[in-house]
Amino acid sequence: MKNKTYFPIILTIPVVIFLLALLIYPLIYTFTLAFYDEASDNFIPFSLNVFNNLIQEERFLKNVYHTIFLTFFSTSISFLLGIILAYCLDQIKIARSFFLVILISPLAIMPVVSALTWRTMFNPLYGILNSILKFFGFEGMEWVTDTSSALTWITVVDIWQWTPFCLLLIYAGLKTIPVDIKESASIDGINSFKELIYISLPILFNLLLITLIFRFMEAFKAFDSIMVITQGGPGNATETMVIRSYYTAFRWYKPEITSVIGIFILIFTILCTRWAGTKIGEQEN
């Protein structure tokens, strides 16, 4: 099927037309807004003012830090938890589907609604979490109303939201590993945990990579839960790059800042996807 033909081009054209039609204008617009400057002396009216101002701003550095914190911890913890839970599910026999249904149920709830529920649960005054703590004799906590702990709890909500996604994909992967591999491992006296680490996970390398990438992307652009629970506050303790760009666009009407942040995100996005895409490509060959 490798002979020269125009057929693949025909298959590709619809998707390319769609992407160009939808994205070309937004991208040009974003770049113009970010770099166009009438007062500039350059031959092409262009300046880096907005860009320079932004990267010198302490607040923006904090935004970057929050984004990295949230993305890193949320991605790694939910990914590891997904592996552990998938392994546990694979080990047990009784009540397996019961646990599976419970563990993936957060996927079914709309993120907006679950975020709102988390917000009430976090409420220091009438939230259920503090009631539970008090019931067991602990002090109540401030949860998301305290600057120092807010980001941590936002991360916990994100983990809650997306671990089921990792679990589902990894569990489905573990199910495809032939039983005889596991049996021969156990005959050789390898315990099931070592079997997971040295045999199952390496077989599933590609699946794990894809899961990790999609998970990473969702964490990076987390919007709903932060917007609903803290709106970037208290102060700007949970303000990520995405939340910041939302505010500059729709609250302070400074779309040029949104554009510059957008370009940051875009460059980062393209770097990550290139790396990931090549990595997956290598595995295929």
Binding site: L23, Y25, I213, K221, G262, T273, G277
Partner: peptide, 23 residues
């Protein structure tokens, strides 16, 4: 083909906010 495929992958990661206003 790989360039287009990578570009499509990056649309998944692109936060909606970046293209919202021009859209």
């Amino acid at each position: 083909k790989n360039e287009i495929a990578h570009f499509i992958l990056s649309t998944k990661m692109l936060p909606g906010i970046v293209i919202a206003i021009p859209l």
